[in-house]
Design a protein around this nucleic acid. Structure first.
Lengths: 239, 239
DNA sequence: CGGACAATTGATCTACCTCAAAATTGGTGG
DNA sequence: CCACCAATTTTGAGGTAGATCAATTGTCCG
């Protein structure tokens, strides 16, 4: 649960007692294959899924195989926290890489939030930040060019990873294909590819073997008009 | 506060005592002009805004005057509920029509949620549904055509209004311009106009004088692949 | 070494945008 | 009741970002 505590402390403050309560949350841990569904659109889960290791993503398929990706998740995230208060899933959650996840019964989460209102507030806050990120992606898909959109998501992912200690020196893992990136941003994989080449040509980034290196952070921020306010990060892990 | 109770009961169940507690929430009521900002991007509000009458919308402006609208709000909504747990606004909230709003201090909301954990859960649920709608709009902007997108938002708005008793017989108020609609869906006003004409031509809708009439509900559902699950409506007001 | 998947390239197409002007509408004051 | 104004809607004429389709190449792994 350490990774969850670290995540929550990146967006709020916890007392020792609260950390302790989170530590002793019961959990059934499991290792999952890459690209494996964890919860599906239409399911009515009775537990939440805490990502301990690896990456996951949320998505929805609409007729004719069109796919929209809503978010990418890293260790410490509870991507389906919402299922605690919304019975029926309106989208799916799946692993991106091999992943270790801990399943926590809704019952245990409910007990925890009942005993510690501050933890409830922090978790609520987490789902609100989730929504803030959705809004920012909406801005991208509605009003930014492909180039700006891709630059923007790179800035976002880097900061999110840095906040939980998974990135530093403008270098971070990025285990997603260009198809995934397109489905997250509302673009075709072909166009994603061309924009990436343009960015490489301008020495903004390097992207090879699942590793993203941001060569020009300031410039990437500038072209995407990136303003991290919406991530609502309280503090950052050194890095 | 009756309108708030009705809204919350459209997505969850309240006890008599809970209804009573909501009724006695302190509020400073005010009438606002059309198109007037209520809270602005960057503000740190100390109160929430309950919409009693009229419409509001949330939006964000990015460089060069590009605007993205995130949501439309009707009586019963608390469009900035998130400010309760997220200190700094990352977008703005404004009226669309003349509107009556009640400002409720964060302090009162916090007392209320502390005393009634079930109300906290319902409000949390409300913000989660808000996020679910954001996701559906993301699907639209990322993967649906302009035609599908417009048809989809009409279905959504009609059901949301019906749920709080503001629409019936496939007819509802819609006090928004084609420019607003475009900024909500990531389209130009010109293109919105052409798509609307196409829909009129096919007798799917009538849209005049701020009133939307859905002439062919089933067909509108079909072309937009509309599935209301994501609205997570518990029950509907008769109508 | 082979097979599968991901990235890349080329060629063509189109949904939607931009710009600009005209027509319509709704509200306002005389 | 009418004339007028501002905002909105509508129309027309290009223009383009990004899509689609179809190979080809590169990469990772067993």
């Amino acid at each position: 649960m350490t990774v969850l505590i670290r995540k929550l402390e990146s967006i709020a403050t916890l007392s020792a007692e609260e950390r302790q309560a989170i530590q002793s949350l019961p959990a059934r841990t499991r290792v999952l294959e890459p690209r494996q569904d964890i919860v599906r659109d239409g399911d009515k889960p009775s537990q939440c899924c805490l990502l301990l290791d690896g990456w996951a993503y949320r998505y929805k398929i609409i007729g004719e195989g069109r796919r929209q990706i809503f978010s990418f998740h890293v260790p410490g995230d509870i991507p389906d926290l919402q299922s605690l208060h919304i019975g029926t899933m309106d989208h799916s959650l799946a692993t991106l890489t091999e992943a270790t996840v801990a399943f926590i019964p809704h019952k245990s989460m409910q007990d925890l939030t009942a005993r510690f209102p501050n933890i409830a507030a922090v978790l609520w806050r987490d789902t609100l930040i989730d929504a803030a990120i959705f809004r920012e992606w909406m801005v991208g898909m509605g009003r930014r060019s492909a180039y700006e959109r891709i630059a923007h998501i790179f800035c976002e992912l880097y900061l999110k990873l840095q906040a939980v200690g998974l990135a530093q020196s403008y270098r971070c893992p990025l285990p997603i294909t260009q198809i995934d990136l397109g489905d997250a941003l509302g673009l075709s994989n072909v166009h994603v590819n061309r924009v990436l080449q343009e960015m490489r040509g301008k020495s903004l980034i390097t992207l090879r073997g699942n590793t993203l290196v941001i060569e020009a952070w300031d410039e990437l921020n500038r072209v995407s008009e990136f303003d991290p306010t919406y991530l609502h990060l309280e503090k950052r892990v050194a890095g």
